[in-house]
Design a protein around this nucleic acid. Structure first.
Length: 217
DNA sequence: AAGGTGCGCAACCGCCTGGCT
DNA sequence: GAGCCAGGCGGTTGCGCACCT
C-alpha cells in the first residue's frame, strides 16, 4: 500500500508528536490513513490514531488513577466485563488502554492477595502449609495447579483466557465466611484484603487501594 | 556498583464491525 | 447482497525504570 518505503514502528519522537498534532489540528480526528499519508509521517494510520487517542489528545488526564476512578473501574468491570472502551467513556480523560493496563496490574495484586489468603487459611486450619480441601476445590490454588495445569511458578492470573475465568471466579468467591464483611454501597466485597490485614495485625484499611499500598511487611 | 527482577505503560497485532460503493 | 476498507477494540508484547539483593 504505502509505496514510499517502510513505515516506522516503535516509540514516537517529540517531532513526530508535534507533526501529528499539527496534522490533526488541520485535518481532524478521522481518516487516519489519509492523515498519515498527507502529514508525511512514516507511520500507519492506525499508529497515528493510537498515538493521538492514547497520548496526545489535549483532554487526556495523565497520572495515577484516583480512588474514585478505581471504584468506577471496578464497578463497571463487574457490569461490562473487559469492555475497556465502554468503561473509558465513563471516565473522562482516561483511555481504554490506560484502564486495561490498570486492570491488569490490579488483577495481579488481587490474585497475589488471594494466594496469600489461601495459604493462610490452610495454615490456620491444619497447622501446616500443604494445600487442603479448603483450598483445592474452587480457589486460585486449584486454578493454579489442577484445573489449568499450571505450576505455581508459571501461573499468571492476568493472562487471558484465564484472566476472564479468574475474574468470574473472584467475583463469586468469599474466602472465609466467618470473617466476611458486608458489601459496601457499591456492592463490592473487601473480604480478601481485610483478612490479609488481620493476619498481619494491621487492620486499619477499608479500601482495596489501601491494601494495594500495603507491601506486606 | 552490578546484575536480577518486577512493574507500568506505550505500542503493536489481529480480528471484528460498520459504512460505503 | 457482496466486497472492500478504515477505524475500533481487546489482547499481547517489549522496553525502560525503579527497586532489591
Amino acid at each position: 500500500m504505502q509505496g514510499e518505503g517502510k513505515l516506522r514502528k516503535g516509540p514516537w519522537s517529540e517531532e513526530e508528536d508535534e507533526h501529528l498534532a499539527s496534522a490533526v489540528a488541520v485535518l481532524g480526528e478521522r481518516r487516519w490513513d489519509s492523515l498519515a499519508r498527507a502529514s508525511g509521517l512514516r507511520r500507519s494510520g492506525k499508529s497515528c490514531r493510537l498515538r493521538w487517542m492514547n497520548y496526545l489528545r489535549p483532554d487526556l488526564k495523565h497520572g495515577h488513577i484516583s480512588t474514585e476512578e478505581e471504584r468506577v473501574i471496578i464497578e463497571l468491570h463487574e457490569k461490562l466485563g473487559n469492555k475497556w472502551s465502554r468503561i473509558a467513556q465513563k471516565l473522562p480523560g482516561r483511555t481504554d488502554n490506560e484502564i486495561k493496563n490498570y486492570w491488569r496490574s490490579y488483577l495481579k495484586k488481587k490474585s497475589q492477595a488471594m494466594e496469600k489468603e489461601c495459604l493462610r487459611s490452610t495454615i490456620n486450619s491444619s497447622g501446616n502449609t500443604s494445600l487442603t480441601s479448603e483450598c483445592d476445590t474452587a480457589s486460585p490454588c486449584s486454578i493454579n495447579g489442577d484445573i489449568l495445569g499450571f505450576t505455581d511458578d508459571s501461573f499468571d492470573a492476568t493472562n487471558s483466557p484465564y484472566e476472564t475465568r479468574l475474574t468470574e471466579w473472584m467475583s463469586n468467591w468469599t474466602p472465609d465466611t466467618s470473617k466476611s464483611e458486608p458489601k459496601d454501597e457499591y456492592g463490592w466485597n473487601f473480604d480478601i484484603y481485610h483478612q490479609e490485614c488481620i493476619f498481619d495485625d494491621c487492620r486499619s484499611s477499608t479500601s482495596i487501594w489501601d491494601y494495594s499500598l500495603w507491601d506486606g511487611k
